[in-house]
């Protein structure tokens, strides 16, 4: 069984008289440990799909089973607890809390977990050094470059050690070198830590980091191209993780 199973997943919005359907009866399986790139024209439903998988939005119909649990059926508060344990979200515009330092931003999701201060401190420090920013722990977001901000955001997304990472155009606002650093980091998280990674991107070059690329169009999947070069590795990662 795949880690993430979308069945007839549909999302509609009412806009006055008309209804918009960003996702239209979508079927999708994502294997544990895989790295999936989502591409498609703007407005094709990529963010909507990511939000559903990340549990910050409810599907209108269909089922969304993650690790055997249909999260479409969870209540708002149950879903919040589920997010805290299972997903990390990386935004295009980093979305760090401006009045908090890098350390404090990464600490935020850990506050939800009843562990000792010392243990929390260790987890946050580990996450920050994993993204190579241990020395910037007391910097505020405004004192960091875009690339550094995004790496702090990634540290925040992984500090609770979730199985799934979703990233919505994580390099969309970065210059080339920073984008490369962020992509290297994400690839390592996928390959070394076995995180299942789903990433939206506009950029074909960025999509090449993934081992599978899907194209969305008007809320439906256009094709499914598994990149041969990475498929072997995916299998290995899966084997190690299960």
């Amino acid at each position: 069984m795949a880690l993430i199973e979308c069945r007839q997943l549909t999302k509609t919005y009412r806009k006055g008289e008309s209804t918009i359907k960003p996702l239209d009866r979508l079927d999708l399986d994502v294997e544990q440990g895989s790295f999936l790139a989502l591409m498609g024209p703007s407005g094709s439903g990529k963010t909507t799909l990511l939000n559903l998988i990340a549990g910050i939005d409810h599907p209108t119909s269909g089922s969304l089973t993650i690790d055997g649990q249909n999260i479409a059926k969870l209540s708002r508060s149950k879903l919040a607890a589920w997010r805290s344990d299972n997903v990390g979200y990386v935004f295009q515009l980093y979305n760090l809390v401006p009045v908090l330092t890098a350390y404090e931003n990464v600490e935020l999701p850990m506050l939800l977990h009843p562990i000792s201060r010392k243990e929390r401190h260790e987890r946050v420090a580990t996450a920050l050094s994993l993204v190579g920013l241990a020395d910037r722990h007391d910097h505020y977001p405004r004192q960091l470059s875009g690339g550094q901000e995004q790496r702090v955001a990634i540290a925040r997304a992984i500090v609770t050690d979730p199985a799934i990472l979703v990233a919505d155009e994580p390099t969309g606002d970065l210059d080339k070198p920073s984008a490369l650093a962020v992509m290297d980091l994400l690839t390592r998280l996928n390959q070394e830590l076995g995180k299942t990674l789903i990433m939206v991107t506009h950029d074909a070059q960025t999509a090449e980091y993934a081992n599978r690329t899907l194209h969305l169009d008007k809320g439906r999947l256009a094709d499914d191209s598994v990149q041969a070069a990475f498929s072997g590795e995916t299998a290995t990662t899966q084997g190690a993780a299960s």
Binding site: S77, A80, A81, S84, L108, P109, L112
Partner: peptide, 16 residues
């Protein structure tokens, strides 16, 4: 508003 949405994304419940 956005900051609270971020917190919710991180797993903070609306009640919290």
């Amino acid at each position: 508003i956005k900051e609270h949405a971020i917190l919710q994304t991180l797993g903070y419940s609306g009640a919290l």
